[in-house]
Design a protein around this nucleic acid. Sequence first.
DNA 1: ATTTTGTCCTGCGAGC
DNA 2: TGCTCGCAGGACAAAA
Length: 293
Amino acid sequence: MDRVRILDPRILGTTSNRLIAPEAPARLAAELTGAELVSVERRGKFMWMPLHTGARAAAAPPVPAGARAEPRPARALSVHLGMSGQFRVHDAADPVHRHTRAILDLERPGRERLELRFVDQRIFGHLGIDDLVESHGTPAPRAASHIALDPLDPRYDPEHTARRIQAKRTGMKPALLDQTFVSGIGNIYADEALFAARVHPLAPTRTTRISRIRAALAAAAAVMRDSLAQGGTSFDALYVHVNGESGYFERSLQVYGRAGLPCLRCGTAIERLVIGGRSSHVCPRCQRQPRSR
DNA sequence: ATTTTGTCCTGCGAGC
DNA sequence: TGCTCGCAGGACAAAA
């Protein structure tokens, strides 16, 4: 990484720390400049790129075949996408979108350089440097170490997740949204998963049969896989690929945003509930109301 | 101790 | 036309 520009220092803040030290942008730039990004890891909406800061290729002696070329990175560029954050890949000559908060210049050996631009309209996102610590058997930024694996992770254990959810005293939708159980399920995919599994969002986890919890988790994984295959859910230009292209999953949504419209399975009008300050979409016939409220 | 609520932020559309 | 209001979303400190 060559040059780092922080266009809006607020992107360096987090939910718990909105105070941005005046020297924070320069500190981040200094740590990133010269570091090598060799991989991108992800867990839910947390994303990180371990920083290889060892000797540069030009100065380093040849590494014997089979030996580790670099020590295991101790730090990472740590990113949370918030709700509207996204990385976009650009040429330096491309016009800079007004919501661009940071620009990382990447030099690539033998290829033309490019810019990785962090665009985030609502600034719920975050950019920073964080220590890598052991979490769920793999290194993860300290700030994300409590975040569970997501359903698309090969190490994800749905049975364990289902049991943990059942042990918690809450509703099925809040449980799916709780990133310490399973990550990557947001408001939209939670509604879709519960509809697919015919589970009511307010169904108490303690009294919901484990098979129903398993079904909801399996449905969430399926929804995420399907969505990914279609490029994600693009309501508008906020939710696009690194190249700016939209996803098409919005066309596949079964309940989310369909309040008042007929259920695609039974024709009953979809209802909109507010759960924890977030809207929930539910078919009152397909997803039986829990007995107590 | 555990669960719920409010806050951070911008842009857009509805209503006046 | 121009304003205010409510809403959207994820994470987590603060309150209950």
